[in-house]
Structure formats: C-alpha cells, structure tokens
C-alpha cells in the first residue's frame, strides 16, 4: 500500500484516496480523498484477511495507538506507575474528548435516588479494550486527569454538587437495574447517593440525560461507603459489607474481578 502516509497528521492534511482506504475515526472524506480532521498519529488498520474491505485510516485520539510507526508508545503500565519511556521529560497529561456513546462502558457517581430511577453523573468513559478486562485506571480514556482521585473522593459528600454540572448526566431507570425480577427492584436497595456505578449506555437519551443500564453481572456498584462512612466490600451480588463494623447493606453489586 502507499508508503507516503505521514506519521503525524494535522487537520486538513490529505492522507490517501478512498479507493485504497476507508475513513476511520478522526478523518473525513472530501472529493474522494481521506483527510485528517484532528491532529495526531495516523493509524492504519489493515483489512480483515479474506474480506474484500479496505484498510481503515484513522487519526488517533489516544496515546496508546498501536502501530503508528512512532516508537514511543508505552502500552502497558501498572496503575499509578509512570511509563518508563517518558522518564526524561515530565509527561504532559493526555486529554481526550470521548463522549459517551451507545454501548460504551462508563463509571458514574450516583447523585440522586428516586423511586423509579437513579440519577448519576458520568465520571469516566472507559476504553473499549478496558471494558472487557476491567477497570485499569491507567488505560481508561477520559478528560479527567486523575481517575483514582476522582473515584476515591467519590463518597465524600462535600464535592458532589460543584463539579456535577460539568459532567454528563445519566439516568438508570428501575427496569434497567438488573436483568431478572425487574418488577421487584427497589431502588433504595440498589444504589445510594455517592456510590460509584459501572454501567453501559443504552441510549443518548433526551437533551439532558443519557440512559444507562446495569443489567449485567459485571455491571453495578463498584465502590460504596456504608452509612458509617467506611468503604464496603462486596459479599454477594446484592450485598456489601462494611469493613469495620461488619454492617451489611443492599446494593446491585458488580462482579469483582
């Protein structure tokens, strides 16, 4: 294939003809040519062998883009650890602008629990790859800089209202909480204000709310504090226990890994 692809593209830069490439994320098509629409490393995804498709050109929004031709991609990092390749210069924090889309897995904080629904504010849109293997904070994509800090400050009631206006809001309706016995769901026994919930987006919703579901074993409350204010650990799919007092509370618990 054409070897003239630049390693790094800027918006408006011509990348290749549509006869040999199809346009992926971060690109657009203009007059039978694929053009970059964001600045970043160019990624070529070869077509599936056997199928008659074309290679997909995209411009990466993520720093962990594989196969960009730039040998500067530390892919695996432990949570909290700095990538070794960037020890020389202080690495600027990478910002993403990924909106929640249908089927994306998000972490959200419960802000309000009502009889028929729970209101949550979306903290993080998890990476596609991260959604299958769990929550690895260093692999998530969001414009939030420090996911650990966001999550650990979650149950603190002081910093709820201030930043929620800047986050995308979502609803978990009563019938979307779990897959079985939907009509017996009592929202108060599923979520409490301040819980961190993992859910998937089922709809972009109306002007103000996305719609989330937790009707899967791996979805539900991942972090919660008890009434005494201590962190709780999950003991079953519907119960979490205070690590200090041993008090049990009801939640729709996500399967731990």
């Amino acid at each position: 294939m054409a070897s003239t692809l630049p390693a790094l593209a800027i918006p408006g830069q011509r990348l290749g003809p549509v006869t040999s490439y199809s346009a992926g994320p971060g690109t657009h098509v203009q007059q039978s040519n694929v053009y970059a629409s964001i600045a970043g490393p160019v990624v070529v995804e070869p077509a599936q062998p056997g199928s008659k498709g074309k290679a997909t050109l995209s411009v990466s929004r993520s720093i962990r883009a594989p196969g960009t031709g730039n040998a500067s991609k530390p892919v695996t990092t432990a949570p909290g650890a700095k990538p070794a390749a960037t020890s020389a210069t202080p690495k600027p924090k990478v910002k993403y602008n990924t909106l929640p889309a249908v089927d994306s897995v998000v972490l959200a904080r419960v802000t309000r629990v009502q009889k028929r629904q729970a209101t949550v504010s979306i903290l993080v849109v998890l990476d596609e790859s991260g959604s299958t293997q769990g929550v690895n904070p260093s692999q998530t994509t969001s414009d939030n800089d420090n996911i650990e800090a966001i999550l650990s400050s979650a149950a603190n009631p002081e910093n709820h209202s201030s930043s929620d206006e800047l986050r995308f809001q979502a609803l978990i309706r009563k019938e979307d909480v779990r897959a079985v016995e939907k009509d017996r769901v009592v929202m108060d026994e599923m979520f409490r204000v301040g819980d961190i919930v993992r859910g998937t987006v089922i709809s972009l919703g109306d002007q103000s709310f996305y719609y989330l579901t937790t009707a899967r074993n791996d979805l539900g409350v991942v972090m919660a504090r008890s009434e005494a204010g201590n962190m709780m650990f999950p003991v079953s799919w519907k119960e979490m226990r205070d690590s200090v007092t041993g008090q049990a509370e009801m939640r729709k618990v996500a399967r731990p890994f």
Binding site: L8, P11, G40, P41, T86, V94
Partner: peptide, 18 residues
C-alpha cells in the same frame, strides 16, 4: 498555524518537548 498544531500533536503523542 500548521507548524503550531503539528507541535501540539507531537507533544500530545509524547514525541517532542513543546
């Protein structure tokens, strides 16, 4: 502009200091 944006992309990709 193109030069500045390229620099921004490089900084983003961790290739070069700004």
């Amino acid at each position: 502009l193109a030069e500045a944006v390229r620099e921004s992309a490089e900084r983003f990709a961790g290739l070069a200091p700004g």
